[in-house]
């Protein structure tokens, strides 16, 4: 693999993100929505309103159902508001937060090959002495790096909002918990990488960016399933399960990476995308 070429392609792709208004908008709006607006609205409503009165007995029962599954709590959970915020921050928000790397990585990675094809520049890349491995690895890095950075910034923003508003409720910092640390250090990077690998692979096969986004959107389904499972009280995904899921995704990523390098040669890419 040629590191000079790799750097040149990554640099060009990263600059392109800042040149594309639609990509840049996605990279700004998604983190603000998931790490500022949603946590601020929910923690803020717990601070400002009487949730027990607003939500009624059924909501109270659901919170108790969650609480029965929660172990090893290190923050005071005396009021309904504290319990609600604790459950929301540690169990429901992480699933929602995973949508940040998924949406940003999908948007950037789906553009990787098919974007070059649509701009008629893929031909120039394939006519140059760039190995296919270098090309794929460059595209993966150029998609992974901004998505991971956006996740980190989102994590910090979430922390500021949650601790800022949560302090009024708990009288202490409640963020980051073990769940969040496992999420940001293990699960989020693994999910980002998987999203990037899948979308780069899809992008190297489909004819349009729209098509790449439509197919790549399927990756969101397991996360939606996890969110629905948690929200219904069916199960709660804590730090140990998150670690196990991260490990499973790591294995999937290794397989994907191997498949990508094995099944993509210049001839296949050229005939699928250019001819």
């Amino acid at each position: 693999m040629n590191s000079r070429i790799l750097k040149a392609i990554v640099k060009k792709d990263l600059k392109d993100i800042f040149r594309s208004k639609s990509l840049l908008t996605t990279l700004i709006i998604i983190p603000i929505l998931f790490s500022v607006i949603i946590p601020a609205a929910l923690v803020g409503s717990a601070v400002l309103f009487d949730l027990k009165e607003m939500a009624g007995n059924e909501a109270g029962k659901l919170i108790e159902l969650f609480m029965a599954q929660v172990k090893d709590v290190r923050v005071p959970l005396e009021t309904e508001e504290q319990k609600f915020v604790y459950i929301f921050i540690n169990y429901l928000l992480p699933s929602l937060f995973l949508l940040v790397p998924i949406i940003t990585a999908s948007t950037v990675a789906a553009n990787s090959f098919v974007g070059e094809k649509e701009r008629r520049t893929l031909e120039s890349l394939l006519f140059s002495p760039v190995s296919i491995k270098t090309l794929f690895v460059s595209k993966v890095i150029a998609s992974f790096f901004p998505s991971f950075l956006v996740s980190l910034i989102s994590f910090i923003l979430s922390g500021v909002v949650i601790n800022g508003l949560g302090y009024l409720l708990f009288g202490m910092m409640i963020f980051p918990s073990a769940n969040w640390l496992v999420l940001i250090l293990c699960l989020s990077p693994m999910v980002t990488l998987m999203t990037v690998l899948l979308n780069v692979l899809i992008s190297s096969r489909v004819k349009t960016y729209q098509e790449a986004q439509n197919i790549g959107g399927v990756i969101i389904l397991p996360v939606v399933g996890m969110m629905a499972g948690q929200a219904s009280g069916l199960f709660l995904v804590g730090a140990p399960i998150m670690l196990l899921i991260s490990l499973a995704i790591l294995i999937i990523n290794a397989i994907l990476l191997q498949r990508i390098t094995k099944y993509n040669d210049r001839f296949v890419l050229f005939e699928k995308q250019i001819h």
């Binding site: 392109d16 040149r19 594309s20 701009r119 008629r120 520049t121 031909e123 120039s124 006519f127 002495p129």
Partner: peptide, 16 residues
């Protein structure tokens, strides 16, 4: 490809 140059019909340049 190292010792050859190509001019394609579409020019193959980055417009941005």
């Amino acid at each position: 490809r190292k010792f050859s140059g190509v001019v394609t019909e579409s020019a193959g340049l980055y417009h941005q």
